[in-house]
Design a protein around this nucleic acid. Structure first.
Length: 575
RNA sequence: GCCCUUGUAGCUUAACGGAUAGAGUAAUGGCUUCCGGAGCCAUUGGUAAGGGUUCAAUUCCCUUCAAGGGCACCA
């Protein structure tokens, strides 16, 4: 990509003077400072004890004439700013038109393997707005990494094992009616009701809590009744999950698209315990088996309960062992978990344990954290039955998208296509809202907030795309491999400069695992296009100008569509 | 008690140690001959407080205050 070329040119120039510092280039926010800028002179000036401005001048002199650089400028404290030639921007536009999918891919990450684990809902628990974050963000990150050249494995670490099932089984046996649940439209709702009841009753009577543990032990020991009930819970849950993933258009690649749930590792844990014992990492404490960390870096991590039953940590270790040793992946595969920030400490413990085991190197395990949805007053909690079901949110999303169309509909066809697309637009609004901010921020649960349809919102992006398409469809424009030479308007030039940044934005969103970087970019691009659109006629312009503006519009549309696709957001052709 | 995260306009938020802190929303006032008003333009308004490091701090360090999360038999 062009950014790499600029970087190479400047690095070569700087190396003639000193090789002590690596050159970083960035795109300044303010266009008056050029397309790219570097602060290398100021950093070198310090090391070489020279005047930064002089240093900058010296470096600038070393920069050879190049066909992609129009102008080099040295500014105040010691910035060196670069402008691209119009030919470069124009050629770049043609590249976008010819093949957006391979446009500007980086070679540095090509083929590197990475496992992205996301969504990971729990069986027999509600698929809430909370799980939505992991699903949406994880999916977007996986897409971004793929676009940046990685080989991505998409895994869903289903919570289909654990003490909760002991509780669930006890609850179904005590207060539930299997035949009745079987016939229900939404069996999971009933399972959750029973789960909530369990916790209520357990507060009054601690004996019940014990029963939960006993039944999980039975399940682990292969008790037939326990196994049957457990399997039923899984089947009931999958019915619901499939519907949701379908609506959200989210998919997984591992284990035939179902992901490796915790129960897959049920028979792979003994091996882990043995390895831990052999490496003398297990300590007995209050009857349980724990990993203690040197110098109490972290609190101890429990591996086995006092009754010998496993915990999530045991299963997670088995999961990662599988990933690191299975030939499907590779020993240096990067593993990232998109999981809520409240599990930060746990993941630090887990990663530390894996390092102590000698399994992974630094930075091979990554926890991508996201903040939680919060109510103003109370906390969301499955145990207390205090949740927002995702289905409810998806329904509301659709309703809001529809009602907006009623307010503004101009004719019957627009309205009709709008209703057809209400789902896509509603879900787009929901996804965009989740992706547009840094993931680690908490989101206050508020319908108007999460289903925002105006301004910096999903529909704004989709609308801009639709309008681009509409303009194009009213002409018989088809992309050519040469653009007419015209005098660019300021808004046009700015759009061309922005378009050129797209590949490096995708790369940095991928590397930083931060889809919000792409959202920021796409929104600014759409704003810039809308500004241009209001100011300059396209179809009424003279032939050359019209062709150029149509090419520009097509490129913007391609980038928006491609960008939204990477975010997991669909576009529509009419709305 | 200890640990982690977060404090930016009324509200929701952006900013890779860099240049004049950028948006959305709400409020007010404008803009529909044209390609689509889910839009565009303008105005008002901001880095929690106090120190420090740096040529340069919203960003790094320290203190205080505030919010959220976590700290072994849940995940």
């Amino acid at each position: 990509m062009i950014k790499d070329q600029i970087q190479a040119i400047i690095t070569a120039a700087v190396n003639k003077i000193s090789t002590r510092s690596t050159v970083h280039i960035q795109s300044p926010d303010n266009p008056q400072f050029g397309d790219y800028t570097t602060n290398i002179a100021m950093r070198l000036a310090k090391e070489l004890k020279k005047n930064p401005l002089q240093m900058a001048e010296e470096i600038a002199k070393q920069i050879p004439k190049d066909e992609i650089i129009e102008k080099v400028e040295v500014v105040k404290p010691g910035f060196i700013n670069f402008w691209l030639t119009k030919e470069t921007l124009s050629k770049n536009l043609i590249q976008i038109l010819s093949n957006i999918n391979n446009y500007g891919k980086s070679e540095t990450t090509r083929g590197k393997k990475i496992i992205v684990e996301y969504s990971s809902p729990n069986i027999a628990k509600p698929f809430t707005i909370g799980h939505l974050r992991s699903t949406i963000i994880g999916d977007a990150i996986a897409n971004l990494l793929e676009a940046a050249g990685w080989t991505v494995f998409r895994d869903n670490h289903l919570g289909d094992w654990g003490t909760q099932f002991g509780k669930q089984i006890y609850a179904i046996k005590t207060w539930g009616n299997i035949g009745k649940i079987e016939k229900m439209q939404q069996p999971v709702k009933e399972l959750v009701r029973l789960y909530v009841k369990f916790h209520k009753e357990a507060e009054k009577n601690p004996e019940i809590e014990e029963q939960g543990k006993i039944w999980f032990k039975k399940l682990e020991d292969g008790n037939e009744e326990a196994r049957i009930l457990w399997q039923k819970c899984i089947d009931w849950s999958w019915k619901e999950f499939n519907e949701i993933y379908d609506k959200l258009q989210v998919t997984f690649t591992e284990n035939d698209g179902k992901g490796y749930g915790e129960s897959f590792f049920e028979d792979k844990m003994d091996f882990i315990i043995k390895e831990l014992q052999n490496k003398k990492l297990l300590t007995k404490s209050k009857g349980a088996q724990i990993i203690a960390f040197p110098k109490d870096k972290y609190p101890p991590l429990m591996i086995l309960k006092d009754d010998g039953a496993t915990l999530y940590s045991t299963r997670d270790l088995a999961t990662d062992k599988f990933r690191l040793t299975n030939s499907h992946y590779s020993a240096d595969v990067l593993i990232i978990n998109e999981v809520g920030a409240e599990q930060s400490l746990y993941f630090q413990q887990l990663f530390e344990a894996e390092k102590m085991l000698g399994w992974v190197k630094d930075n091979q395990r990554v926890h991508v954290k996201h903040g939680m949805y919060r109510f103003k007053d109370k906390k969301m909690s499955t145990r207390k039955g205090n949740v927002i079901w995702l289905e409810e949110v998806l329904e509301e999303a659709k309703k809001r998208a529809e009602s907006l169309s009623k307010q503004h509909q101009t004719d019957a066809t627009v309205s009709q296509s709008y209703h057809d697309n209400a789902n896509i637009i509603g879900i787009g609004a929901l996804k965009w809202n989740d992706l547009k901010r840094s993931a680690n921020m908490d989101i206050l649960f508020d319908w108007d907030e999460i289903l925002n349809m105006q301004g910096n919102a999903g529909p704004y992006m989709q609308y801009t795309y639709v309008r681009c398409r509409s303009v194009i469809s009213k002409s018989n424009f088809s992309p050519k491999n040469k653009l007419p030479r015209i005098d660019y308007q300021a808004e046009e030039l700015e759009l061309m400069r922005m378009l050129e940044k797209y590949p490096s934005i995708v790369e940095s969103a991928a590397v930083n695992m931060a889809p919000n970087l792409l959202c920021n970019y796409l929104f600014t691009l759409a704003q810039q296009y809308n500004l241009f659109y209001q100011k300059h006629p396209i179809l009424k312009a003279d032939q050359d100008t019209k062709n150029f503006r149509l090419a520009l519009t097509t490129a913007v549309a391609q980038v928006i569509k491609n960008g939204l696709y990477l975010l997991g957001i669909q576009t529509v052709e009419k709305m």
